[in-house]
Design a protein around this nucleic acid. Structure first.
Lengths: 250, 250
DNA sequence: CCATTCCTATTTGTTGGACAATTGATGAAT
DNA sequence: ATTCATCAATTGTCCAACAAATAGGAATGG
């Protein structure tokens, strides 16, 4: 509104100066980022669920005093996040494919995962799988251990290293599952592509069916025996072993 | 190529009909998606590494016969993926922030958090701040402790509960920073909105400047004294205390 | 009355152009 | 030589136009 535009050019919307949006990243507020926050607020405050539609581009332009390209860039972000799906004429409908999109990120082969990322991820794993031993021993049930044994056996029948790495990851995921914390599990799943790369880089098919298999078995033994100290040692060694190939190469 | 443009208006690039791009998602090829693939190819075939620069928008327009807005939407996707960082005048530089971006995806549903999520997040915090004590004691420096003291003192001068909660969060974030793991720090930052809600719900301004302040101070004492057992106890108690209001209300 | 086909209006997709904002680089003044 | 102002290049935002896709209604035929 207030269409009185002194300069017929384009009055920088300026968006409300009261724009104290949460500023998720460090980056200073841009019109597009503001718009993303506004639309997010629109979704959450409007109680919109998966399947519901968003206003059209034009309506968003008017409501937030933004140009259509700005709206489109904001929608492009939401599309990339897997939060909305846009089709011509029908508009933008809310979806939830964030997890799939998160995994896509690393299938994005353009970039080799940087060494720093490897180090950080492996450190994170160490924290989640070694330092969480208290929670683990509190909650683990015989059924969990049986599952883990079953998964571990699949390592012996895998025919490709990539399949074996999937099994390896499933083993560790199943272990994380025992903790019973969805946030932790989600974060672990997000790291999957990087973890798989670490595994593939460090192991051959033969390694999976021998070293990895027996290390897993030993870890399960420590769990069955309720030996916390041994568990921490075995798990830490197991993770570090898979990682040393990256430490070497300066 | 084939610059013979019959209609001077805007000949839809049409992109080469031989466009067997990889089609990352199911969606049919659009000009923007094609462009993303082209830029990806540019990066991988050009052997571009983190820190290298991409061509300017105008050059990309000319090279791929696309409009600038199309180029911008493609770059917006790459930015959202955390593959490039764009600054005015300097252009697009290749980065690798994919992990942070992948974790960002989950900041989207933190607006409407269920009780289960609260519990999970708090459990996650406990793991990150209590169970990580080994890493913490390995790496903490006097300078870190001094910073933490300084931040903690700000609790005494905060004039609103919301300000105090920001300081409180900053205290804990600074602690996580000591671990020196970017992935962990990113996860912690993502949980910020939820953690702030927990804090606000559990404490008043007065509580911040008394109980919280002194608990923080005691935690710092255990760090200075290198007393791991005491640290774990104090920190666990501190976190649990702030959270028990949520446990009660069924 | 119902089904099919066609048309139209609406909405998204793409392009080009204009101006503002930012910032690195250059040159002038002290 | 240093500092400051200016310049120029680049990104950020907006606008207007047209193309493409399509939902929904109108027209047509049975």
């Amino acid at each position: 509104m207030t269409d009185a535009r002194p300069n017929p050019s384009q009055e920088k919307s300026g968006s409300d100066p009261s724009g104290d949006e949460t500023e998720i990243h460090g980056s200073r507020s841009s019109a597009v980022d503001d718009l993303v926050n506004h639309i997010r607020a629109l979704i959450s405050e409007g109680g919109l669920k998966v399947g519901d539609s968003l206003p059209t581009e034009k309506e968003l332009c008017e409501r937030f005093h933004a140009g259509r390209n700005t709206v489109r860039e904001a929608m492009r972000i939401l599309k990339t996040y897997g939060v909305v799906k846009v089709r011509p004429k029908v508009g933008a409908v809310i979806i939830d494919e964030r997890m799939a999109r998160a995994l896509d990120l690393f299938a994005f082969n353009t970039l080799e995962v940087s060494r720093d990322t490897f180090v950080d991820i492996q450190g994170f794993r160490s924290l989640l799988e070694v330092a969480s031993f208290e929670l683990l021993f509190d909650r683990i049930k015989p059924r969990d251990i049986a599952d883990l044994h079953r998964i571990n056996k699949e390592l012996l029948t895998a025919e490709l290293a990539i399949d074996a790495s999937e099994v390896d990851f499933r083993f560790h995921t199943r272990l994380i599952e025992v903790i019973g914390n969805k946030a932790i599990l989600d974060v672990y799943k997000i790291m999957k592509p990087v973890i798989l790369k670490i595994m593939i880089k460090a192991k051959t098919l033969h390694t999976f069916s021998t070293v990895t298999y027996s290390e897993h078995a030993e870890i399960l033994d420590t769990l069955e025996a309720r030996d916390r100290t041994a568990y921490q040692y075995k798990m830490k060694t197991h993770l570090d072993a898979g990682f040393k190939h990256f430490e070497d190469r300066k």
